[in-house]
């Protein structure tokens, strides 16, 4: 019995979601009285940092061949690593890689999978979000081995100080018909799904030319920017900023909604945020019902003041 965690990397560095998965997996291992092993694929800087997330052992599959992500191959490596350490629980982040790999793992191993966990397992049951954040379900995994993908902020970060042992690992991987030709990333932009703070604006901003203050506020807070769906649909903002039921679902620590009414489909994608601030001229805007803090006021007056207040705080 042991716990295996897939810790994904991007450009040779662990992703924030990989750390979340490692932290979650270590807590699962602790609860089960067993140890937490991470599988690392490809080049990775500073592997020892995983010790501070409770990992005691790393299996490192370091082959250049795998700098390109192919879920079929990644799944096969995880299966072989799980066999080697007799893993009974496999943990992945519920991010783009985890969503690709976890279902393949579950089908190949013929075991139960719960995606989008928001809490540690209790026995064989795991709590996850359903109805796009409008509810939670507690799901029993009926197979002896379980696979779980974890949402950001599912559990509090614990501080561990484990010393790691790293072992080179290799296995046969299937030849596949898929190749990654190119990876395009907006280089210095903070990724929306990984940001701790998100500043988001809607149709209340009246036009794309008014986003300067939104970007400035985001910059002052070290936040990513997001928007409501109509704003992306009319082309005021790029599509990748669209959050909600039919866009990205995000779970930052702080979500600041400016000039967004708070339609049910918008809330579905953001109500996993820890703290919600709403700025809206309409005191009856539904978003206030989901908010922790609210200002009834005009964004064009409030936001510039907010920028000054944040600057003052940091000074």
């Amino acid at each position: 019995m042991s716990v295996l965690i897939y810790t994904d990397t991007s450009n040779g560095a662990f992703t924030k979601n990989a750390f979340e998965a490692a932290n979650y997996g270590s807590l699962v291992a602790k609860n089960e009285g067993t140890s937490a092993t991470a599988i690392v694929i490809g080049e990775a800087k500073d592997i020892s940092i995983l010790g501070t997330y409770g990992i005691t052992k790393v299996l490192h599959f370091n082959e250049a061949l795998l700098t390109n992500f192919d879920p079929q191959k990644v799944a096969q490596i995880i299966i072989e690593a799980a066999k080697k350490i007799s893993a009974t629980t496999i943990i992945l982040a519920h991010d783009y890689s985890g969503k690709a790999v976890a279902p393949i793992l579950a089908a190949k191993l013929d075991v139960g999978l719960v995606t989008g966990a928001v809490a540690l397992p209790e026995g064989n049951t795991v709590k996850k979000t359903v109805f796009s954040g409008k509810a939670f379900a507690t799901i029993e995994i009926k197979t002896p081995t379980k696979i779980i993908t974890v949402l950001p902020n599912a559990v509090e970060k614990q501080t561990f100080s484990e010393t790691l042992s790293t072992e080179a690992f290799s296995c046969e991987i299937p030849s596949t018909r898929l190749t990654v030709k190119e990876v395009k990333k907006a280089s210095n932009e903070l990724s929306l799904t990984e940001a701790d703070i998100v500043v988001s604006a809607g149709r209340g901003l009246k036009g794309p030319e008014n986003w300067g203050m939104i970007e400035e506020l985001a910059k002052e807070l070290g936040a990513a920017t997001a928007c409501s769906r109509p704003v992306a649909d009319i082309g005021w903002r790029p599509h990748h900023e669209h959050v909600g039921q039919t866009g990205l679902a995000i779970r930052p620590n702080l979500y600041i909604a400016i000039g967004i009414s708070g339609a049910i489909q918008h809330l579905a994608g953001v109500n996993g945020s820890k703290v919600i601030v709403v700025i809206n001229t309409d005191a009856e805007a539904p978003f206030f019902k989901a908010a922790d803090y609210g200002i009834v006021g005009d964004a064009f007056e409030v936001v510039p003041k907010l920028i000054q207040a944040v600057k003052k705080l940091k000074a």
Partner: peptide, 8 residues
């Protein structure tokens, strides 16, 4: 993918 796209 996180913060971007992959061409496959």
């Amino acid at each position: 993918i996180e913060g971007g796209i992959e061409l496959i």
